[in-house]
Design a protein around this nucleic acid. Structure first.
Lengths: 152, 152
DNA sequence: GAAAATTCATTCGTATGCAAATGATATCAA
DNA sequence: TTGATATCATTTGCATACGAATGAATTTTC
């Protein structure tokens, strides 16, 4: 058998397609779905970003926490959460204090204004979730959320 | 009854109006799923980001295009795609030229090196997709991709 | 054909997002 | 107790991501 035919045979045994379609890849669609959600978020809540909202909502849940711990809870690394908290602090929505025992820790908590803000925004957040999932039927929503959670 | 159990009872009897859980919101989970994918991508392809890969993969599909048109195809706005293309150009993976007729347009195309790179990376991209979807069964993958596409 | 509207690209400003390096503090282990 | 590790936070650098403003070129409209 010629070298050329041998090559063809080897290629024929490969199950791989030559086609690669970017728009069918899960990463690409995930990025687009996320973009769409952020856009819907901004249309409902113009003065806060999703990460800023997440920080406030989580502080409402757990109360005072260290900056790093908050980052863990809302899936942000230390460098990212610092920027988010800095901006919330500049707007008076959170306040910072030093941990009395562990001097490394920077404690973060809602201010009264921050608490008012998050309570006021949560109903809008429900609308955002609803609009994001609007293309799906209720049954599809349940299925999708279950599967998405497995990937996160 | 202990004070602790009494507290539990009182809490159980309270109509729960604090029923907003960040970690159950589609936007939050979408963000985490995207983060996980990007992390998997970086583990397989260290020298290119997902947007850079997307640009090369799409140029492979469609050939020479204008920068804006490419942005539309890979869901990036004009400002973002400019930065991505600038960096790919600096690395010699794409080349730019002026449109002869429409002088507003900046044409983008793969260089020989860029074409080699994307052909070499596509098999790795298949692995990335596979690993991202690994928590799901094949049947779940089909369902998930169908529903995700509706949201993107 | 000229004014108006549109399109393409660039620039600026702001906000994630993360790797890596650094410094301060706390904890673990020999 | 001390030396090694680990944790918390900060800083720097780089890369998306997008709104808004701008300028250049094209198309539409009247």
């Amino acid at each position: 058998m010629s070298e050329e035919n041998l090559l063809k045979l080897v290629e024929a045994e490969e199950p791989e397609e030559n086609d690669y379609h970017l728009q069918e890849q899960v990463g690409f669609i995930l990025r687009k779905a996320h973009q769409r959600h952020v856009s819907i978020f901004a249309a409902h809540i113009a003065d806060l970003t999703p990460p800023q909202f997440a920080a406030l909502a989580k502080l409402r849940d757990v109360g005072e926490t260290s900056q790093n711990q908050l980052g863990t809870l809302i899936a942000m690394d230390a460098a990212t959460v610092k920027g988010v908290i800095d901006r919330l602090k500049a707007r008076g929505l959170v306040e910072l204090s030093k941990h009395e025992v562990d001097k490394r820790r920077l404690l973060v908590n809602l201010t009264a204004e921050g608490r008012d803000a998050i309570e006021r925004l949560i109903p809008l957040a429900r609308d955002i979730t609803e609009e994001t999932l609007a293309p799906l039927t209720p049954k599809e929503v349940a299925t999708f959320m279950k599967l998405l959670a497995k990937l996160a």
